[in-house]
């Protein structure tokens, strides 16, 4: 009775109801775009028509797939390494107040490092293969996740802390059963930010120096003024970032279905 859903529509109808405004926007934008280059004289080298981009993708799928795969692997590996390291560091800093006080200003500095500024140095250290891109992606993932997770570990309600005290909970029980669950919404918010940042990091690092990847593909296409290829590559990188975002969202829905932010989105 309390759980009665406000949306009583059948499932496909409900999905369609949620999706059609976005589809309409896509149709209008692509239509305008198509008209601009085919009827209104927009030069191809500035903005090629959507069908030309699609044609490029269909005719030369190999380089898109091969370079897309490289970027995907770099971003995923960097993301995973960054998250694991961040969670470990957050737990260490959380249990050691002195170290946390000493480190937190530098974490904020780290969060604000402009990626292009650090990428050349990382490439000098780790070479221009995939390793340097993984490191850059890991750096960009690490800082938001460590900062938000630390914040989340302190987010338990004052009254909940009292409750655990009255229930005579040990320190480790407090961590496992109160503070870690309370930190999960913060952790997922950070993952959302980091998932987009890791793809960005890999692509930008590839711009600087690389022999494969979406960034590399865009750069070489730009040298030959192959704008359809540039846009096809942009679409692939956006696809990778969206895939990341989707994975994080699904994980969030599975792991913290109780949280208001998840419920609001359903």
């Amino acid at each position: 009775m309390i759980m009665a859903s406000k949306n009583q529509r059948s499932k496909p109808a409900a999905v369609w109801h949620g999706v059609w405004p976005a589809l309409l926007v896509a149709v209008v934008v692509i239509g305008l775009w198509y008209s601009a280059s085919h009827f209104w004289g927009m030069p191809k080298y500035i903005l090629p028509a959507p069908d030309l981009i699609l044609k490029e993708a269909i005719e030369n799928p190999n380089s898109l797939l091969r370079n897309g795969w490289v970027t995907l692997v770099e971003a995923t590996t960097g993301f995973a390494v960054g998250v694991l390291l961040a969670v470990f560091v957050a737990l260490v800093l959380d249990s050691w107040r002195f170290l946390e006080k000493g480190m937190s200003p530098y974490l904020v500095v780290g969060l604000n490092i402009p990626i292009v500024a650090i990428a050349p140095a990382v490439i000098i250290w780790f070479g221009f293969g995939m390793m340097s891109k993984i490191v850059v992606a890991a750096i960009l993932t690490f800082f938001p996740v460590v900062i938000y997770t630390l914040k989340g570990l302190k987010a338990a309600d004052r009254r909940e802390v009292d409750l655990f005290s009255v229930l005579s909970a040990s320190r480790i029980q407090g961590l496992l059963k109160l503070r870690m669950p309370s930190s999960l919404p913060f952790f997922f918010a950070a993952l959302r930010v980091a998932s987009a940042a890791s793809v960005l990091a890999a692509v930008v690092a590839e711009f600087i120096q690389a022999n494969a990847g979406i960034g590399y593909l865009i750069l070489t296409a730009a040298y030959t003024n192959n704008t359809p290829r540039i846009w096809a590559a942009v679409a692939v990188s956006a696809g990778i970032a969206l895939l990341f975002y989707w994975v994080v969202t699904v994980a969030e829905r599975k792991i913290i279905p109780w949280h208001a932010s998840v419920d609001a989105r359903n």
């Binding site: 909940e160 409750l163 109160l178 669950p181 109780w258």
Partner: peptide
């Protein structure tokens, strides 16, 4: 407690 203070998860 004054509020139920249930763990939301």
């Amino acid at each position: 407690f004054q509020s139920a203070t249930l763990l939301e998860w």
